[in-house]
Amino acid sequence: MESAEQIRERILAGVPGADISVLPNPAPSAQHSILLGPGRAREIAIFLRDAPGLKLDLCSNATGVDWPQHGYLEVVYHLYSVELKHGPVVIRQRTANRGDAVTLPSLTPVWRSCEFQEREIFDLFGVVFDGHPDLRRLLMWDEFKDHPMRKDYVEPDDFEWEPTPHGDVLAKARGHYPAAVPKEGPAP
């Protein structure tokens, strides 16, 4: 398997002007990753999938990572080649910020295996994938508002809604949302 630097050179030769950089991984696993800049991610992905000598036809794992200390969300893909039996090549994309509707290009049109995994990232991290054929929540229900895998996620107080909240629930709610909670009184 070529090193991440060599793969970077290859991408630059195949997709001229691509904005990519290598992120070293200090762990003994030495699985260094390639960061794709905004813009041409899908073009680079198609190159990685089809280029002879790389042929990374299996996107094994796709997942999100939340980095509040750096101010972005990250999506990580682990690519392998079934044909040439090598891998992993790790590619990453980063969002501009950690807002509610941050978008990244979807790689589902390139690797169908991302279909459910990107839906899961959308569900749990809140990254909106541009070009995904069927972007819905995967694990949480459709009416759910938040993204539980974000580091600053706070479980809502009406998580298990009860028609007559008792003392403990009200006290907990008051701690989180001091203004929004009505005063304790007889149940409606």
């Binding site: 991984n25 200090p26 003994p28 696993s29 699985q31 094994s60 794992n61 682990h78």
Partner: peptide, 21 residues
Amino acid sequence: RPKAGEAYGRIEGPKGEIGFY
């Protein structure tokens, strides 16, 4: 406490590739 870094490990489970990142 492993040092900072990351790893993806996978094996051939009975149902397919089970991996941990």
